[in-house]
């Protein structure tokens, strides 16, 4: 465990807490893409299958439980909770995310570490996570103005990926056979998706203006 990875995990945890805070405090999920949240549930469930079979550390197991339960809790709120579900932008959140699921699964069948159930699921979760933010970014561009918490949510999600890339660079130089080419490629693609959001986020922060994404 290196500092970059810990920073990445903590930043990732912050993104989940921001969403839970926003939903709990405002009883609203406007501006949040349910499709992205559903994709994250699939990512965590597919990736943490080894929760009970492959003990790495207490930290690792606790964080897995936190990510799975919180992502399911967010989807539950947005689908079931009587107050929150009414504020969901159903008409705006129209990204056909099942194509992302099918594409990631197809890619995982072709490119994986070992052609085993667990490795295919792991590769699937890595590819799916790389594109899971797309419905959210499309929703933000559609709804034009971005409320602070949602903007911070996407910003921290991007930051967590940047920390993970730094973590891989660090591990590449400090460990012998550290070959995570699947994570490398998917991670770079994922972080690139945030690039333009970061640009507009920085502009809005510099001009101290409301974050406006070009439609």
């Amino acid at each position: 465990m290196n500092a970059f990875r810990l920073a990445g995990d903590m930043t990732h945890l912050i993104t989940v807490l921001i969403l839970l805070l926003k939903i709990y405090a405002t009883k609203s999920c406007s501006g949040i893409s349910l499709k992205t949240q559903e994709l994250y549930v699939m990512v965590f469930v597919a990736r943490y299958l080894d929760l009970f079979t492959n003990f790495i550390s207490v930290y690792n197991s606790v964080m897995k439980v936190v990510f799975v339960t919180s992502s399911i809790a967010i989807v539950w709120c947005m689908r079931i909770h009587p107050l929150v579900r009414r504020t969901y932008d159903k008409e705006q959140d129209t990204f056909r995310h099942y194509f992302l699921v099918a594409g990631s699964f197809g890619l995982a069948l072709l490119f994986n570490e070992n052609f085993t159930f667990r490795e295919v699921c792991w590769a699937f979760s890595i590819y799916l996570e790389a594109v899971a933010i797309l419905p959210q970014l499309v929703l933000l561009q559609r709804s034009g103005n971005v409320d602070n918490l949602t903007g911070q949510y996407v910003f921290f999600l991007g930051a967590y990926r940047v920390f993970y890339i730094l973590n891989w660079i660090y591990r590449y130089f400090t460990e012998k056979h550290f070959s995570r080419w699947i994570s490398w490629i998917a991670g770079l693609v994922q972080t690139a998706l945030y690039a333009d959001f970061f640009y507009y986020y920085f502009i809005s922060w510099k001009n101290n203006s409301k974050l406006q994404l070009p439609a």
């Binding site: 995990d9 990732h12 492959n54 690792n60 964080m63 070992n114 993970y164």
Partner: peptide, 10 residues
């Protein structure tokens, strides 16, 4: 053979 491929990251 190569040690079991461990996914030790989240």
């Amino acid at each position: 053979d190569e040690e079991e491929y461990k996914h030790d990251e989240l």
